[in-house]
Computed example of a mutant assay.
Amino acid sequence: MKIKEIIVVEGRDDTTAIKRAVDADTIETNGSAIGQAVIEQIRLAQQTRGVIIFTDPDFPGEKIRKTITEQVEGCKHAFLAKNEARPKRGKGIGVEHASIMSIQQALEAVKEVMDEQPSQIFFDDLVRAGLVGGSHAKSRREKLGTLLKIGYTNGKQLQKRLQMFQIEREQFFHALDVILQEEHKHD
């Protein structure tokens, strides 16, 4: 699988994992304190070939994603679920621990930030679905992010992320049904 866009990752181990899974070029941010030189590199890559941001599913990874998105318009996004980014043994979380198949699936499901349009999913929908507040909210948001391939987000940011990737009501409620059916199987 050849990727036209340049994939932005956090470090050298992520580049190694990406290159095992697909034929692609990468830019490494080398941590969450992204320098202006790296931003300029990403901006040039976006203008010439396009960019896919593929950071770790953790706080520093989300910070990097947000920093780049704010400074470079039009980037695409690939997401891994946390359970796909954990090592078989030991601690940590990151793209470098993901299987070849997980990386390929994440890159096949790339999301593009769309021009802001009014959200089809309202905050009340999130509350009623138990995605904000309540004992199961965090795990439901994690599962929703995995099913919709939009990554994990906290309750405050969920509606914005759904809007950003223009997730339609039908998609949202279908994913929610899958989550609720899974929960009922385990009750």
Rank of each mutant, 00 (worst) to 15 (best):
K2T: 08
K2C: 09
K4T: 06
K4Y: 14
I6H: 11
I7L: 06
E10I: 03
G11R: 01
D13P: 02
D13N: 05
A17T: 02
I18S: 00
K19H: 04
A21V: 01
V22E: 04
V22A: 03
A24R: 01
D25H: 12
D25L: 12
T26H: 04
I27S: 08
E28Q: 07
T29R: 11
G31V: 05
S32M: 15
I34C: 05
G35P: 12
A37E: 08
I39V: 12
E40C: 15
Q41P: 15
Q41I: 14
Q41H: 14
L44P: 15
A45E: 12
Q46W: 14
Q47M: 12
Q47V: 07
T48G: 14
T48P: 11
R49S: 08
R49L: 11
G50Y: 15
V51Y: 11
V51P: 03
V51N: 10
V51E: 08
F54E: 05
T55N: 00
D58R: 04
F59P: 11
F59G: 07
P60A: 03
G61T: 01
E62N: 07
E62D: 09
K66N: 15
T67K: 09
I68M: 07
E70P: 14
Q71P: 06
E73L: 11
E73S: 13
G74P: 07
K76I: 09
F79N: 04
F79A: 06
K82R: 15
E84L: 07
R86H: 11
G92R: 02
V95W: 00
E96H: 00
S99C: 04
I100G: 12
M101W: 07
S102T: 05
Q104L: 06
A106C: 09
L107N: 03
A109E: 09
Q117N: 06
P118C: 06
S119V: 04
F123C: 06
D124C: 03
D125W: 01
V127L: 12
L131E: 02
V132M: 01
G134N: 03
G134C: 03
G134P: 01
S135A: 14
S135C: 12
H136V: 05
H136P: 09
R140Q: 01
E142K: 10
K143N: 05
K143E: 02
K143C: 03
G145R: 07
L147E: 04
L147F: 10
G151H: 06
T153S: 14
G155V: 04
L158R: 00
L162T: 04
L162Y: 05
M164Q: 07
M164K: 04
Q166Y: 11
I167H: 02
E168A: 07
R169D: 05
R169E: 07
E170N: 10
E170R: 09
Q171G: 05
Q171N: 05
F172K: 04
H174G: 12
D177I: 11
V178D: 12
V178C: 13
V178I: 13
V178L: 14
V178G: 06
I179A: 00
L180Y: 13
Q181F: 14
K185V: 14
H186N: 11
D187F: 13
